[in-house]
Design a protein around this nucleic acid. Structure first.
Length: 199
DNA sequence: TGTGCGATGCTCT
DNA sequence: GAGCATCGCACAC
C-alpha cells in the first residue's frame, strides 16, 4: 500500500513550531499528491491558522473533541481534511499532542501535473484551478480518504519550495459569525501572488 | 470588479 | 434537523 514518495518530504521536525509561525513557514513550500493518474503539485501561497482552545472559529474550539476533530489532537504534521458542502478542505495539524490547532491551506500555485489538473477542472482558466481551498483539493486529487495521514509520507506530502520575498497577513475568510475571532489576522499569503483566493 | 444567493452533503445535536 | 473554514453563476454598476 505505502510507496516511496517521488520527492523528499520535509522532516517531521519541520512541523514542530508555533502554529502562527508554521502557517508562515508553509508559504512557498510544495504540496504534492500522488495518485494512480500521476503526480500533481503546487506551491502553497495562502494559509489560515485555527487555534482550537481559544479560537471561536475553529472546529476544535474549547477542545471540542469529536470523530471529525480527533486528528487535531494528534501530533503536528498530520492531514486534517474537512468536507464543506460538496468540497474537501485540507489542513496541516500543528502544535503538540492534545493541543488541537491546525492550518488551512487556502490556495496553491500549480507546478507539476498541469494536464491532469486541467482534466480535473475542465473549462477553467489556470488561475481558477487552485485559487480556493475547495478548488485546490479537486485539482490535486485530495479527498477525505487522506484524513489522518502524515505529510511526511506517500501519497500526500510537503517538500521544500522557495522562500517568499514578502508575506502579507489579514483577517480570515468566510467566518463572519464567530464574534471577535473573525478579526484575528491569522490569514497569511505571499504578497502579490496571483493565485491567492482573493486579491 | 463587486455583491448576493442557491445548490449541496456531511457531521453533530 | 440545523449549520457550515465553498463554489459558481447572475446581476448591478
Amino acid at each position: 500500500m505505502s510507496k516511496k514518495p517521488a520527492y523528499e518530504p520535509l522532516p517531521i521536525q519541520f512541523y514542530n513550531k508555533p502554529t502562527l509561525e508554521l502557517a508562515k513557514a508553509l508559504l512557498g513550500c510544495l504540496l504534492v499528491k500522488e495518485t494512480d493518474e500521476g503526480i500533481c503539485s503546487g506551491y502553497i501561497v495562502e494559509t489560515e491558522a485555527y487555534r482550537g482552545p481559544h479560537d471561536r472559529a475553529a472546529h476544535s474550539f474549547g477542545n471540542r473533541r469529536t470523530k471529525r476533530t480527533e486528528v487535531m489532537f494528534a501530533e503536528a504534521g498530520r492531514v486534517y481534511t474537512y468536507t464543506m458542502h460538496t468540497h474537501t478542505l485540507i489542513n496541516v495539524v500543528s502544535a503538540d499532542v492534545n493541543i488541537p490547532e491546525a492550518i488551512l491551506i487556502r490556495a496553491v500555485e500549480p507546478y507539476e501535473g498541469l494536464d491532469l489538473m486541467e482534466t480535473r477542472r475542465p473549462g477553467r482558466q489556470p488561475r481558477e484551478w487552485t485559487n480556493g481551498p475547495g478548488k485546490l483539493t479537486k485539482a490535486l486529487g485530495i479527498t477525505s480518504d487522506d484524513y489522518g495521514k502524515l505529510f511526511t509520507e506517500w501519497p500526500v506530502y510537503i517538500t521544500a519550495g522557495y522562500l517568499p520575498t514578502h508575506i502579507s497577513s489579514g483577517p480570515r475568510i468566510g467566518i463572519d459569525n464567530t464574534g471577535e475571532a473573525r478579526d484575528y489576522p491569522w490569514r497569511y499569503w505571499i504578497t502579490g501572488n496571483t493565485y491567492v483566493s482573493r486579491r
